[in-house]
Every structure is written in structure tokens, then in C-alpha cells.
């Protein structure tokens, strides 16, 4: 099972980035082996609009089943849903801690966005 966590840094001990579309990047981790890779999001981060949509498309191409982040807006949510990716919000602490919270079922999958649109 492969999941993506929004992260401010390149490794498992980096803090979770609470933003989705404008996160610094993503840690893509294989839960069984805990093997991970860093996906930089800096290009999307500086997009004038639609950062959530672009980030969702990028992460969908990595074959993840879940995204763990702090918050998720409506456009990112709709895009992730189209890619069959489940969204988990409310993550805090380090990426490693967020993964642990997720494993223990302390972070729930949400059925809709938890933030309003930044745009229209």
C-alpha cells in the first residue's frame, strides 16, 4: 500500500506540511517496507491558481491510494476523488508520526473538502 504525505522536507522526520496544493513536496511511502521517495512540489507551489489540481494530478501518477495532509480544498478533493485517491486530513507532527497515526486509525478518511476554495 502506497500513500503520499504532504511534507516540508525530504525525509520521514520532516514536519508535515498542512497545505496540500502548496505543500513544499510529498513523501511517497510504501507502508510495508517504509521505503520512500521525495517528490518536489515547488513548481506547483508557485502556480498563480489551481495548485491543488496540479498537485493532485502529480500525486495520482505515483499510484498512491491515500493522501495524508493537513487540509484539503474542494478542487484538490474533486481531482483526487477522480483519481480514486482517498483523502486524510488533520495530520500534524512529523511525516513518520503522521504515518503512525494513520496506521493506528487515528486519522480518518474524509468524504469531502475541509476548507473553502481560495479562488472563486
Amino acid at each position: 500500500m502506497k500513500i503520499g504525505i504532504t511534507s516540508k522536507g525530504r525525509d520521514l522526520d520532516s514536519p508535515v506540511d498542512e497545505r496540500f496544493g502548496r505543500a513544499a513536496g510529498f513523501i511517497i511511502v510504501e507502508l510495508e517496507s517504509m521505503e520512500y521517495e521525495w517528490v518536489d512540489n515547488s513548481q506547483t507551489l508557485s502556480a498563480p491558481q489551481g495548485a491543488g489540481i496540479q498537485a493532485a494530478q502529480n500525486i495520482a501518477q505515483r499510484g498512491v491510494t491515500h493522501v495524508i495532509t493537513g487540509h484539503c480544498g474542494p478542487k484538490a478533493f474533486r481531482t483526487l476523488a477522480a483519481g480514486q485517491i482517498k483523502v486524510v486530513v488533520g495530520a500534524t507532527g512529523t511525516v513518520r508520526e503522521a504515518i503512525e497515526q494513520f496506521r493506528q486509525g487515528k486519522l480518518a478518511v474524509v468524504t469531502g473538502p475541509d476548507k473553502e476554495s481560495h479562488w472563486a
Binding site: I53, Q54, Q57, T79, G83, Q84
Partner: peptide, 23 residues
């Protein structure tokens, strides 16, 4: 279409094409 759009108003995921008309 998704690649040329500078404003991310159209996205392709799996077998779906999403449009965000307000963008």
C-alpha cells in the same frame, strides 16, 4: 489539454477529464 493549460482549469485523472470552468 491538461498540459497546455497554464491555469489548471482542465485535469486528466484515470479515465476522467475534469474541467474547472471558474479557473
Amino acid at each position: 489539454c491538461a498540459e497546455i493549460c497554464a491555469y489548471h482549469a482542465i485535469a486528466v485523472l484515470g479515465d476522467q477529464v475534469l474541467t474547472f470552468q471558474e479557473l
